[in-house]
Amino acid sequence: MFYLGRDKVAEAETRLPGSPEVPEWSERFATLAQQASNPHLKRFYEAGAVAGETPIADVPMLSIDFETTGLDPQKDDIVSIGLVTMSLDRIRLREGRHWVVKPRADLRNESVVIHGITHSEVEDAPDLTRILEELLDLMAGHLMVVHHRGIERPFLDAALRQRIGEGIEFPVIDTMELEARLHRRRPPGLIDRLMGRSSESIRLADSRGRYNLPYYRPHNALTDALACAELLQAQVAHRFSRDTPVCELWH
């Protein structure tokens, strides 16, 4: 995952929960299932989305992370995908996956430095289309969890448009946004500035540290997906409850 860029994009998208543009996702999925022509995509929508008032403890989730060639979904592409299924109680590594895929955009050296996936590795990797069916089946019936929704959803949407001619929509829980609700709600006050305090970093590693979660080496999509899954468990344990309706958390 691309922390550096994500921070910047986050500011634009942050909003308070419960605002009107949150769609009723189960209805939206029913509509999309009608419209989708790709059979895998159709199946994904048919599996449905949980109702907004469902308690978070009852929601099957999938924590997902992409490494990409850059930050722009229109120009850049996905290099690797890591995901792991979870509930509020358990993250199950047995049901986790990690793929390296061949991007249709150039793999730039700056991004190689970050995620460590090299040109020769992607040369041998399959195109996203080859794993699409498996990916969509794993996503089906799960609520996606990401750390910064500016990446995974738009990138998957763009990648599908390019490959199958139609995009994808789904709700996500964004652990970075949950963190931002706490730390970016107000700008640093005068005292803070005099004391040299800046606002808290909401990058994944820093956020995890606040919940006594261990340090994991970043930028492996599977590790980052696990790290994000653990962060959500910690955030709900500290700041929400098992009964919190999922509509207060998702976007």
Binding site: L93, P214, E230
Partner: peptide, 29 residues
């Protein structure tokens, strides 16, 4: 590859006496 992960905040009860236990708990942090 078969590990499962769970988070507990300070004060949470992890196992109650007599409750079913389905895994062996290994503390990561």
């Amino acid at each position: 590859t078969n590990v499962e992960v769970s988070y507990f905040k300070a004060g949470d009860r992890i196992l109650e006496f007599g409750a079913p236990v389905d895994a062996w708990y290994f503390i990561r942090s």
